[in-house]
Nucleic acid binder design. Structure first.
Lengths: 351, 351
DNA sequence: CTTTTATGCGCAATCGATTGTAATATTATA
DNA sequence: TATAATATTACAATCGATTGCGCATAAAAG
């Protein structure tokens, strides 16, 4: 065990017969130190297996070079990809990233915020959990003077920079597409939660219907948690209606997948009898049969833009710039689950 | 802004006309402090929006209550689930978890280790990246006296506790199952990397063949990175063989998925002409058509066991207990992609 | 050969919380 | 009432690195 208990700059100093301050400066390549001592210190540090104590450094100058990222869950391709985008830029700038999962729990989100503040992270980047309806904890971040940026699942209840996708537009495009495919009774899976993205998608859905002269039918809008099982249940319910829908647009890919399973189990043809579309472009959507029409959110780009906005704000410091709101354009990915016409119509099964 | 610059225990002390040490003890509910001051301090802290500075505390008593977890990528259900298992136990014990992704890059893995050590985490839990072949950085962790536990992708090159699944057994079960389904020329997708799990699975594959009197055919074993695209290429290659295989067992679900796509594109029936199996039980495997036979690794359990081993070791401290090696039993999940006989044979498509 | 100007490094305070020990206030006991 | 015992709180050092300031020594200028 070379370095247990841990070696400090004092140990290095003692060995070289100089002081800790000189060692510190040498390690940080301070020009006030001669080339000779600089090299000697670096060599000694290496030999002694010195590991800088960032905790001490962070305490001394109030910055930890750590950024906390809060996501509902890290195992969604969308979030993972955003995180990656952020991480790349952060690392380039010498920052490390702490990924925290809220699991969509309000309590966990609050605890995480407190933990991050206590850990004195230099900033927080978050996507709000589904069950979060008050935002005091985020205000605490701001009051503490810690830069905060929200992405995807954001809120207007805070004066904060946010990066999101135009969910209204994405949903609008989906529904417009379904209508062009000849669908007239289009159902929608949404969430009862107060998360802006779902409300926006619902609005896009409704607007597309209206603009195309189709009625908005309450009974075709089903609210749930949008997981696979919820999608199954919602679809079951829709199949029990007097007038079945001829298309389903789910606010989540998992919900759409649940619907697909139920439709298949009932021998209902997709997309001929019921067309199907999801949202988010999870990787599995191209694996299903038929492949699932969905909306891509350019998650990597979102991550990069989020990081940009964040670091701008970090640099600005207390100048507290005007919160920015960046809205990215989503892209409709048409696949077999909704394609009734055209060259590939009915070609479900071959990707 | 109530608390910017940040309020410290000294601020609280000043306001109450007492000293910082008393405030510290009061906040930590030290019995030496009277109930009256204790309450007063807590109240003042709340009013002043006090946020404890864990950095200072961590510096003082060398423990940060942070645990670093390194995974190749967080967006795989398997890893996400293990992380969750660890996190649950850690949180109960008052520890926070830092999730770091190595993206299977050796350099990133090394950097992450150093960052975690500098951040003075109380321990490291890791799954080794595919491209890691030397382990000095992990030894540094051990030399620093920081508890280390490896899971899933481990190595015997280190004297370290590890929690893994019996990959040999999992693979053996798959191949045995395929043989029972009447398959005689079973191909295998593996990885050229020196990661134990892939070597173990290959061994399980070979042993199952041998035990059932089937020959091990070099040309049926294809090495790649096991991603979707790799699976596609590998399958293409196999289809070019003089004697095509009648089954493919991929060491990863994504690889199997690539094979499935190619088989479908060629109009080859699954499982009748070629049976298919993957490994890991990624969620999407039950979404495909036919649903994919695979091996479940009980990731949540693995996370819990890993956490148990880790905290045992943490408690033991410098007593440096004998490294444990825990091997979990995997479970074969038979689905339509490999089911040629029995009641559900050929029922592909209905999950 | 002084005086100025660099150059290189040491001294000591600091970041905020913790904790062993000392000091004082309070209560109990003789 | 004096003294012992206990309960509370204060003092000061500490964790490890950083940094403003100052003191040397050396090089350059006059």
């Amino acid at each position: 065990m070379d370095n247990n208990p841990k070696v400090t700059i004092h140990d290095i100093a003692q060995r070289l017969g100089i002081t800790a301050s000189t060692v510190s400066r040498a390690l940080n390549d301070n020009p006030r130190i001669s080339e000779a001592t600089r090299k000697a210190v670096h060599r000694a540090a290496r030999q002694m297996n010195y590991q800088p104590n960032n905790i001490a450094a962070a305490l001394r100058h109030g910055r930890s070079r750590l950024i906390g990222i809060i996501v509902p869950t890290a195992d969604r391709a969308f979030f993972a990809s955003v995180v990656r985008g952020i991480e790349e830029m952060a690392n380039q700038l010498g920052y490390k990233v702490i990924i925290c999962q809220s699991y969509d729990s309000y309590e966990k989100e609050v605890q995480t915020i407190d933990a991050l503040l206590s850990a004195r992270v230099d900033g927080v980047i978050a996507s709000i959990g589904k069950n979060t309806e008050t935002f005091d904890h985020y205000q605490r971040v701001q009051r503490a003077g810690v830069p905060l940026v929200l992405f995807d699942r954001t809120t207007d209840a805070l004066e904060v920079s946010q990066v999101m996708v135009d969910d209204h537009l994405g949903a609008y495009k989906v529904v417009e597409h379904l209508i062009r495919q000849g669908c007239r009774r289009i159902a929608h899976f949404t969430s009862p939660k107060k998360v802006s993205i779902f409300k926006e998608r619902l609005r896009g859905y409704a607007d597309a219907l209206k603009d195309n002269g189709l009625p908005y039918d309450e009974e075709l809008v089903v609210s749930s948690n949008l997981q696979l099982e919820d999608g199954r249940e919602s679809m079951q319910r829709l199949l029990g209606l007097e007038h079945r829908p001829d298309a389903v647009f789910s606010s989540s890919d998992y919900g759409a997948m649940g619907a697909m399973q139920v439709l298949k189990e009932h021998g209902i043809k997709i997309p001929q009898e019921v067309a199907l579309a999801g949202f988010s472009n999870e990787p599995f959507t191209s694996f299903t049969d038929p492949a699932l029409t969905t909306v891509d959110q350019f998650s990597l780009t979102m991550g990069k833009r989020t990081a940009e906005v964040f670091f701008e704000q970090l640099k600005a410091g207390n100048k507290n710039p005007v919160p920015q709101k960046i809205v990215l354009k989503p892209e409709l990915i048409v696949r077999a689950s909704s394609l009734r016409t055209g060259p590939l119509a009915g070609e479900a099964g071959h990707l």
